[in-house]
């Protein structure tokens, strides 16, 4: 029984890894920028839920409003702009930045029942 579980989980992780072997594509700030924002991409892939949860508590409860691990930052940088309409796609739309992975592993994202899914009006691009 356990062996099956291990194999299953192994597959699950492989499929995540496969999906992201290629570098970021699409028309987002992150894909276009040459700057590396995350120190270690595999860490952020694996750990981003923990980072986000930790940061949200610090921001909401303690008023710590740094850019590091802010969800707004993720959305601003990773939302794709439509080439033709020049409008942003929601990060949780099908095949967009968040859902791409999440739909593969069927983990629902709860963030966007409240948070906005595209950069806000005041966002002026990466520093």
């Amino acid at each position: 029984m356990y062996r099956f579980l291990v194999v299953f989980i192994g597959f699950a992780f492989m499929s995540i890894a496969n999906a992201y072997e290629n570098p970021l594509t699409g028309n987002s700030e992150a894909a276009k920028s040459s700057k590396q924002y995350h120190e270690n991409v595999s860490v952020i892939r694996k750990m981003h839920p923990e980072f986000l949860n930790h940061k949200r508590d610090k921001t909401l409860r303690q008023g710590v409003r740094t850019e590091e691990n802010s969800l707004k930052g993720c959305v601003n940088c990773h939302a794709n702009k439509d080439e033709t309409t020049n409008e942003y796609h929601s990060v949780n739309d099908k095949d967009q930045f968040c859902s791409d992975c999440h739909q593969q592993v069927s983990v629902s994202v709860d963030c966007f029942s409240c948070h906005r899914t595209t950069p806000g009006a005041s966002y002026k691009g990466v520093r």
Partner: peptide, 16 residues
């Protein structure tokens, strides 16, 4: 009800 296009500094959503 369900909300979309929230203000960037004010996340709000159904059921809370």
């Amino acid at each position: 009800e369900d909300l979309t296009d929230q203000k960037e500094d004010m996340p709000r959503g159904k059921g809370t």
